[in-house]
Simulated assay, not measured.
Amino acid sequence: MIKKFNCKSLIEYTNYAERKYIKPEKAGDLKEDMELFRKKGQAARKIFTEIAKSLEEKLDGFYLQKVSSWMNQGQVARPYLWVFLKQDGDTENESGIALRVFKNEKTKKVGISLEVSFVERKIGENTLERQNKVLDLPIKKPLYYFVQFSKSKENCMLDRIEGNEKNRGKLIEDMKEGSIRKVLVKFNVEEIENFENLEDLSKEFLKGVRLLMPFYLKTKEI
């Protein structure tokens, strides 16, 4: 049976991005607003989890990790929700395939990207070296790079760069010069509201996984 789904709650929650959450019992006049805030966050996480599980069911050997909470440790609404898919035997500091919610700044439409990346707070000694092996492989649209320049996490610049051989060559040179910290490879599924059911959305995700798989496997090489 094809699963119907309604992503309205997930889309609506992106409007709370970077907003501070206060426990309703401590929010005073904002009590009702904070109760709604919490309700929206919980609903968004629930539908995102459902979306991610629909992909997991179609990926042999990959398993969902814990879905991010709807707010960070500072009780600020996350600008996106995310979750990683990993295989048995993968360590926590290795790269995986992640789903990440995003909002197109021009159209304000909400989508979900797939990427080969790692959890920053669990970085290990060889994580960056292995992640940046994604530059060893040829690339073309619809894949693209998401690059963090500078070696400092606190003082860095992030940039989206079109996936083509000219840009790959330039990034390889930048990497040799030490001006790049990490390179992710990404695939976007735009405007999730246009998908009528999880089956169709999952099929679109699978297209991305097939394109990303060589890059993911490259990060596993020692």
Rank of each mutant, 00 (worst) to 15 (best):
K203G: 04
I192M: 11
L171I: 00
S113E: 05
G61A: 03
D200G: 08
I180C: 02
K20Q: 15
K176Q: 12
E191C: 14
E165T: 02
R38F: 02
S150R: 15
S9K: 14
L217C: 08
Y63K: 13
L217D: 04
N6E: 06
I97N: 03
V101C: 09
V116T: 03
L137M: 10
R19A: 13
V83S: 07
R78T: 00
F146T: 01
K23S: 01
S179C: 10
V183A: 02
K176A: 05
D174E: 13
M175A: 06
N155C: 11
N194I: 07
K153W: 14
M175R: 15
D200F: 09
G89L: 07
K8A: 06
E32S: 09
P79W: 05
A27H: 12
F5M: 13
R160Y: 15
F5W: 15
N6P: 12
P24W: 00
I2V: 14
D60V: 09
R210M: 08
K207V: 00
K186P: 03
L198P: 09
V189A: 12
Q75P: 06
L10M: 05
E190R: 11
P79F: 06
I172L: 15
L171D: 01
L211E: 02
V189D: 03
I139S: 10
P214F: 07
E105V: 06
V67F: 02
Y145D: 04
K182S: 13
K103V: 02
F118C: 09
E154R: 14
N167L: 12
G178H: 13
E125F: 12
K203D: 12
L198T: 01
F102C: 06
Y216I: 02
R45D: 00
